[in-house]
Write a protein that binds this DNA or RNA. Structure first.
Lengths: 204, 204
DNA sequence: CTTTGATTAGTCGCACTGCAACTAGTAGCA
DNA sequence: TGCTACTAGTTGCAGTGCGACTAATCAAAG
């Protein structure tokens, strides 16, 4: 059986591993969503669209990584089906976690791809958009740092993922600033004619 | 008509925009893949699995962003169908590019999610995996910098996306190093008992 | 002289994700 | 009484990722 990894599946197994760790044993999907949101983990796990969560859980169930417990209800609230880790699920979860930590995986975000085609736009158009991005990134960094500070009250251990987001977002912001500088100073500039000349000199 | 954006679709439209820009007018899928690879754009566009490329092009065709030209062949090589931008495609391409540059988009890579669940593993296990990641990231940074230097021979304009990859990868590496330091010094440490105590003090 | 492997060009199926809308009951409140 | 919010889960559709497949040409190796 090939068990495909995904961010969401990793989060689900992690929550079930935690439930087990704390001797609670099981958890139902809706509660997972709430818990992730309440802890601010929705910054790193896409838990906004619930459809994906239920489908992912269904898949983990089908492939035997998790087991359904008897469904029940709390008070008058709707019925729910809690799940728990299977032995296989526990094994696979550890494997996934360790590999995700040890090995950087190639992903393909949109921004670097767009950067690669910047020469096809006009320099001043690019400048305008990067100024806008700088503004938004500045706000985003402030937001992340505030969440980071909040989490850090429990110790650095609990702020690690926000630290990571902060580090990479700030790196992006630095890059954007430096490109803005060169566009404003003219250190980076181009015209259609120059590009055409370059292209013809660099055939194929 | 709703036109959904994707990294691959943006790359396809960009290549067709370039072909137009250079008065070549059209390009066929296989050539797009080759071109992206030969220029090193496969670092930022996932062009390794050709299935996705053909499907994406098919979608762009269906939705009217690109038009099929008469299919032909070069010498004895297999037949191919070249495509060109439609008016709508040109408009949408500009819109996508400008928005992709101006607005950071939330994506959900696996690593930060895994970080969020680190406390469920043992500290020394985590340390081991992060040491491994540090090694791989160091190699990766070296690789990126070599590609970056190569591209930079044509001017900074043509090394921008590698610069970006370098900046964010180095930021990740710094973060990893600093966590390794704290794990080795004991500044970050935890035991199951401490976590259980924390969890019970922070109910729900 | 033939087999092997690389290159060119494209196709197909399946499993998965993302987005959005939908059901349906409960609870608070004005 | 009607409005809104919360709890819990479902469904459809369009899209992506991955891998395997066809099929022809050409060069080199044996």
């Amino acid at each position: 059986m090939l068990h495909r990894r995904s961010t969401l599946a990793l989060a689900v197994l992690s929550l079930l591993a935690e439930a087990e760790y704390l001797h609670q044993g099981s958890m139902h999907p809706y509660r997972m969503q709430r818990l992730l949101r309440d802890r601010g983990k929705d910054e790193v796990v896409n838990v906004g669209q619930r459809g994906s969560l239920y489908r992912t859980i269904d898949r983990l169930h089908r492939t035997g990584l998790i087991e359904a417990r008897e469904s029940g209800r709390d008070g008058n609230r709707p019925e729910h089906t809690p799940y728990s880790l299977s032995d296989e699920g526990r094994r696979v979860w550890r494997e996934w976690m360790l590999d995700a930590l040890a090995t950087p995986t190639r992903e393909y975000p949109e921004f670097p791809a767009a950067i690669a085609f910047i020469p096809l736009l006009d320099p001043d158009e690019v400048l305008g958009r990067l100024l806008e991005r700088r503004r938004k990134l500045t706000d985003e960094v402030a937001r992340i740092q505030s969440l980071m500070a909040e989490s850090a009250e429990w110790g650095r251990l609990f702020a690690l993922e926000m630290e990571y987001l902060n580090a990479t977002t700030e790196a992006e912001l630095h890059w954007v600033r430096s490109v803005i500088d060169d566009l404003e100073s003219g250190a980076i500039s181009w015209t259609p004619e120059q590009l055409a000349a370059l292209a013809s000199r660099h055939p194929q």
